[in-house]
């Protein structure tokens, strides 16, 4: 009898919780149209949420349209969401941006960080390797273990792979004893610092930010090489937003991003400011992607 009673109570609680949530969903859904946007998960999720909930507030205020951030688990998922029109705007890396714009005809890169014009990748090594910083990528890399970031990352995969192939004239699988994909830049740093991998390739902005926050122990892991500069991150928008929000909506969003001066928000990216971008700025990325076979040609 008591067991049955208990189950009844639990069922009632279960039901009421569900109804409350359902009600909330409905009230939100019934509101005006909103812009949903996403971002590649290149760092720890809590930082992304912090960063993008702030910018969502800012954009909502500036444009008068509600912006909602949709977190995703992988680079591929962010591209898929953009391709399917589940999100209309996204903060992509160089590679994922190119991929998204290839999939959606008319999609435009509208802004990038000031630093994204001259982006670099750091190669980092665990202290046990004995490797130190040099101008040239050391041949001693051969036969060690190596990790990229995400498979779909520009700074964590595309560019480092491109330069590895160029310098060693072989695929990474042939250069190293073992090649892994950590998933994101924070993870790469953690894995190389702990020694799970001897070498890693990491986004320099993430490295510098974590260094400033004291998350990196320089006695255990250090930068051994910097790639030449390339263009990376960007805000990309779908062309069909004009149907719902007016023909000049893309310009409104672009202006809002370019005029962003709030240091707190910019620091979360971290970028000095956002500047104008267009699709052609990323042609080099496309070429590189074609060269290493990430894109079909």
């Amino acid at each position: 009898m008591t067991v049955r009673y208990l189950i009844f109570i639990i069922a009632v609680i279960f039901l009421s919780v569900l109804f409350i949530r359902f009600k909330q969903d409905e009230s939100r859904g019934a509101g005006e149209k909103k812009i949903q946007f996403t971002a590649i998960p290149d760092q720890d999720e809590s930082r992304l949420t912090e960063r993008f909930s702030q910018i969502a507030l800012y954009l909502s205020k500036e444009t008068g349209v509600e912006f909602v951030y949709i977190p995703v688990k992988s680079y591929a998922a962010s591209v898929a969401a953009f391709k399917n029109g589940e999100v209309q705007l996204a903060w992509f890396g160089g590679l994922s941006g190119v991929r998204a714009r290839r999939a959606v005809a008319g999609a435009r890169a509208i802004a990038q960080g000031e630093e994204d014009k001259q982006f670099v990748t750091y190669f980092i090594a665990n202290y046990r390797t004995g490797l130190t910083y040099s101008q040239q990528l050391s041949k001693e890399l051969e036969g060690r273990t190596f990790t990229f970031g995400s498979k779909g990352s520009t700074s964590g995969r595309l560019m480092p792979e491109y330069y590895l192939r160029k310098i060693f004239n072989r695929t990474p699988g042939k250069i190293f004893k073992r090649v892994g994909y950590s998933g994101n830049h924070s993870k790469t740093i953690a894995l190389v610092q702990s020694g799970s991998y001897e070498i890693g390739a990491v986004n320099y902005r993430v490295w510098e930010k974590e260094l400033k926050e004291g998350k990196i122990d320089l006695t255990k892991v250090s930068v051994i090489w910097k790639t030449p500069e390339y263009t990376d991150y960007n805000w990309t928008i779908r062309p069909d937003v004009t149907e719902d929000f007016g023909t000049d909506f893309i310009d409104i969003v672009q202006n809002a991003l370019l005029s962003l001066e709030n240091r707190d928000i910019l620091d979360t990216f971290p970028r000095k400011s956002f500047i104008k971008a267009d699709n052609s700025m990323y042609d080099a990325i496309l070429e590189t992607g074609l060269a290493i076979g990430i894109f079909d040609e």
Binding site: S74, Y75, A76, V79, A80, K83, R99, A103, S150, K151, G152, G180, Y181, I294, F295, D296
Partner: peptide, 17 residues
């Protein structure tokens, strides 16, 4: 991240192929 078939499937997904 272990190099079984799933790895290649995951890579293809991440390349949107």
């Amino acid at each position: 991240g272990i190099y079984t078939l799933g790895f290649y499937i995951d890579s293809a997904i991440s390349d949107d192929r």
